[in-house]
Design a protein around this nucleic acid. Structure first.
Lengths: 137, 137
DNA sequence: GTTGACGTTTACGTAAACGTCAACTAGACA
DNA sequence: TGTCTAGTTGACGTTTACGTAAACGTCAAC
């Protein structure tokens, strides 16, 4: 059977983050493992929560946003509010990402044509040996 | 005829940046206008250089990288070195942007499917909430 | 002679997400 | 007992691209 508790390095290794990062998340209130003395002991729930945090990060959410989504989740109550909040945030983030993608696509296009121009110019210089000195845009 | 010199606010307005930003670029050695007394006076060349800087920013280059590209440009010498450097940097940046785009596309996909799931779940909850009574769209 | 617009400098603040370092402790092993 | 390892805390450092404030100069207009 798999373990039911984990050390900080267990999780750090599993998810490829530093233990400092995990402690940082704790500082920010995103996760709060139990303690045996001073030592942090992570439950399966904590592990799942960390997974969620990292997933949120991958999707481009800020730690604050992630914290809100998690805070809102109350196992006793209706999950509606949390889900609605999360859904809204996801929609927002989706918009942001779509815009970013557009910006990046534009930049890529501009770069590609710029690169092509540069290459042409360099090739011409090499081929023509010494064409006239011209000004670049 | 158009003006041959510009004040800092001229350029700030033309390119939609704050004068603070332009001074910041000067701090970083990206541009160095003449002075009349203390006041900065920008030539057409300075203006063109600023344009290049902002273009570089749009394409996602750091100010450091932009500085190197500009520093390398020596009007007296062969432009080959500068062009090669710039070309290399453009290629690198292109790679970075392509990777970023991929990450963003992945995130968008994940978000979209997540959103769909959430919506399904919410709709199911709403539908099941008061089964025989009302139906909420 | 004062107002207002614009300019200058220096210097500290901001945001995000950690990294780095020093100093300390607790437990395990020999 | 001593040493190792793993863990802890707190505080400060890093990066990038500026923003903001303080305190002052300059100049033309009214």
């Amino acid at each position: 059977m798999e373990a039911n508790t984990f050390s900080i390095t267990d999780l750090a290794e599993e998810f490829q983050v530093t233990s400092r990062t995990i402690r940082f998340y704790e500082d920010k209130g995103l996760i709060s493992p139990e303690r045996h003395g001073l030592t942090r002991v992570y439950s399966r729930g904590d592990r799942a929560r960390l997974k969620l945090i990292l997933r949120g990060r991958r999707l481009g959410f800020s730690l604050q946003e992630i914290k809100k989504m998690i805070d809102l989740y109350n196992p006793d109550g209706e999950p509606m509010e949390q889900l609605k909040y999360t859904l809204q945030k996801c929609d927002d983030q989706l918009q942001k990402l779509v815009e970013q993608r557009k910006d990046i696509n534009d930049a890529i296009e501009e770069l590609e044509s710029g690169i092509a121009d540069l290459k042409d110019y360099l090739n011409a210089r090499i081929a023509g040996k010494e064409p006239a000195k011209k000004k670049l845009a």
